[in-house]
Design a protein around this nucleic acid. Structure first.
Lengths: 260, 260
DNA sequence: CATTAAACG
DNA sequence: CGTTAAATG
């Protein structure tokens, strides 16, 4: 079974660029979207409830901002959207969906840039990382089968962005942000794409300014992290840079269907 | 000589819809624009200073809001943009340009609708009408040659809008607003278009909602008012409903060139 | 219903 | 540089 994650940068916009044909052809069991930027009731019916898909949305209180959505072939056994911290929960950043023995966490981690193009949102971003880490500590320890998929808004290592030197101080590649990812991996979470692909040049996000995507000057900030219990079933991980419609591209894993 | 007035609803937008070709073909000596909605430095060069035109702009402090512009074949002898009332002067609503013996006042009268789609801006609108009226009282009494052109944001009489009954309470056709126009005409100003055309069905603005322009359900709210001294030279007045590019269309007068 | 700017990424 | 929403008309 395939699990796909995609930051669509506005599902209504992506819809106008062929989201539904892409969805049909993705051969996925579960599709996790970030930056939906709409409440469910603002979406056209054909996107809110496409035939043969079950859908769930968690939107931010603030209109047009953040928001995650989950499309799955089967109805999940349960979906939880809260971390219990109101400041985080009002931003529509999380869906914890259980499919039998497999849990998929669809996460849109906060961007570190603040109002005045400063770094003022980094503390909130780091808190969010820590709060979710704590939430998933128990299933991880218990050998649970968990995938954490989404836009982490952080490139982990030099190999994960085209211009590491120039971005040491940029939010998304600062030491304190990378350290949060380090903590996850030290605890046992596996960066599934990196597990299978040791080389660089694979990115999931490109700035919209200039024509930088053509030159593949990007960042790998969208991940599928797998708990060891889930990783045992991961056969393959991929990035799909040819899929357009957003400034991010989809990332995916293929799992042995016995994982559920 | 022809003097034209047009509320362009964003000169940058109108530019993208063929403003310059229209300007070339307008056979005008003076073109007065309202709702330029840009500072001069935000305009592309070809619009800010087209070959063979002299241009002047007065913009609002608030970005993207209001603003008037004057295009003339000859450089005006003087251009004044202030009424002396700061609340009015910061909104870029007036250019008083002198061409020899002829004065052209390019005016964007305030809209009466306020923040919450209420009528809260009507007092400001009426004050503006009165302040400008007072400003032009002396030249009028002295037999001066003055044209007041622009978007008055008021339909004068039943004949000046397609749906008078339905709009008695709507800003733009309320008694207190129509009364301001009455005052101007009583004082001797002549509604040049109405002087030559006694019939109805001639409008200069149509709502953008629905397909109402096609059905000619509009309002005549753009005028060329002439002082008696100027009216003696007005040979003809016209409305140009076929000109697209804005929710308003241009209005014009042709004058004997001896008026200057 | 269309224009523009602002916030955010 | 693109998406969305808010203000204004």
């Amino acid at each position: 079974m395939r699990v796909v994650s995609w930051n669509v940068n506005g599902l209504r916009s992506a819809h106008g660029k062929g989201f539904l044909p892409w969805l049909s052809g993705a051969r996925a069991q579960v599709v996790a979207l970030q930056e939906v930027r709409a409440r469910a009731d603002q979406l056209p019916n054909e996107v809110r409830t496409p035939p043969r898909w079950k859908t769930h949305f968690s939107s931010a209180e603030r209109p047009g901002y953040s928001g995650v959505g989950l499309f799955s072939r089967d109805e999940p056994d349960a979906v939880e959207t809260r971390l219990g911290i109101p400041e985080m929960d009002v931003e529509g950043r999380l869906q914890l969906a259980r499919f039998g023995k497999l849990t998929v966490a669809n996460v849109y981690f906060p961007n570190g840039n603040g109002k005045d193009r400063d770094l003022s949102r980094i503390p909130f971003k780091l808190s969010f990382y820590r709060r979710l880490f704590a939430e998933l500590e128990k299933p991880l320890r218990d050998g649970g089968r968990v995938l954490v998929v989404g836009d982490f808004n952080t490139a982990h290592q030099d190999i994960d962005l085209a211009r590491p030197r120039e971005n040491r101080e940029t939010s998304g590649f600062r030491p304190e942000e990378r350290e949060e990812l380090d903590r996850w991996l030290r605890a046992g979470w596996v960066d599934s794409f990196r597990h299978f692909h040791k080389g660089g040049g694979h990115y999931s996000w490109w700035s919209q300014r200039f024509g930088v995507r053509e030159k593949n000057i990007g960042w790998r900030i969208d991940y599928v992290l797998a708990s060891p219990g889930a990783m045992a079933y991961v056969k393959r991980a991929a990035i799909h840079p040819d899929v357009s419609g957003s400034d991010h591209c989809p990332v995916s894993v293929d799992l042995d269907s016995a994982v559920r």
